[in-house]
């Protein structure tokens, strides 16, 4: 897949093969093209070249079937935040063509499990950042997709909520689902993922199972080496 913005090439040919049933981590520094890649993969952004396949369905030529199998939590995208949590879930459920009774039952369960039931009729716009992530995740999972694509699911989430989200995702993968998520938090990726891809400057630098990528070292060391970060000398910022 390739995407250019004006003169800047955001994603210069990314080819990812995500095995079904894997817990896939997409790592990269800010501006590496993670969000662009994931947006193209789920049908939010039209690629200049290439395409994306979800369990045999082309996202760009057969969007209806492909999108039915997908659950998405985009990053930096607003929810319809002038609805309450329950209303938002009902909206997403019906939008996916689900039966109203099933929507009601799953919405109640999701709100309970994610500890959002207490918010009652508070509008999502008044939620905290962590609560917004959780309700977004609930919307992505509501229709029981076969593949969930999460962009920065752990950003701005408190440790208790993060633990709960990890549990839910873990159970989901154990039950046969597939998860792709982007992050730049090494600990989370190391703890959860079966497969890892490291992305920088619009291309994939390393890819494989977690053990293949990190080898004997820690994932953080590999990441910094691949991305090419600088090491501090201790001289700069002396005034701070």
């Amino acid at each position: 897949m390739v995407k250019r913005f004006d003169a800047k090439v955001a994603v210069a040919g990314v080819n990812l093969d995500v095995p079904a049933g894997s817990f896939y981590g997409l790592l990269g520094p800010n501006g590496a093209g993670k969000t662009t890649t994931l947006s193209m993969a789920v049908g939010l952004l039209r690629p200049d070249a290439g395409t994306a396949w979800v369990l045999g369905h082309d996202v760009w030529s057969d969007p209806v079937r492909a999108k039915a199998l997908l659950g998405v939590l985009p990053d930096g995208v607003r929810l319809f935040d002038r609805l309450s949590g329950a209303e938002l879930l009902a909206y997403h459920g019906l939008l996916r063509g689900m039966d109203p009774a099933v929507v009601d039952q799953r919405a109640r369960e999701l709100l309970d499990v994610l500890a959002l039931a207490d918010a009652g009729r508070t509008l999502v716009v008044d939620y905290s950042a962590g609560m917004k992530k959780k309700i977004g995740l609930a919307c992505a999972l509501l229709h029981a997709p076969r593949l969930v694509v999460l962009d920065e699911p752990f950003e701005a989430v408190d440790p208790v909520s993060a633990a709960r989200i990890r549990d839910i995702l873990h159970r989901y993968v154990t039950g046969g689902g597939t998860v792709i998520f982007s992050s730049h938090v090494m600990e989370v990726v190391e703890r959860l993922c079966t497969h890892v891809a490291i992305m920088a400057e619009g291309t994939i630098k390393r890819v494989g199972t977690l053990d293949e990528v990190r080898g004997e070292r820690s994932l953080e060391d590999v990441f910094v080496e691949v991305v090419g970060g600088r090491t501090a000398t201790g001289e700069e910022l002396a005034w701070l």
Binding site: L83, S84, A86, E87, A90, V103, D104, A107, R108, R121
Partner: peptide, 8 residues
């Protein structure tokens, strides 16, 4: 006590 759909 309304269900999610009824609230929407």
């Amino acid at each position: 006590s309304d269900s999610a759909v009824d609230q929407l």
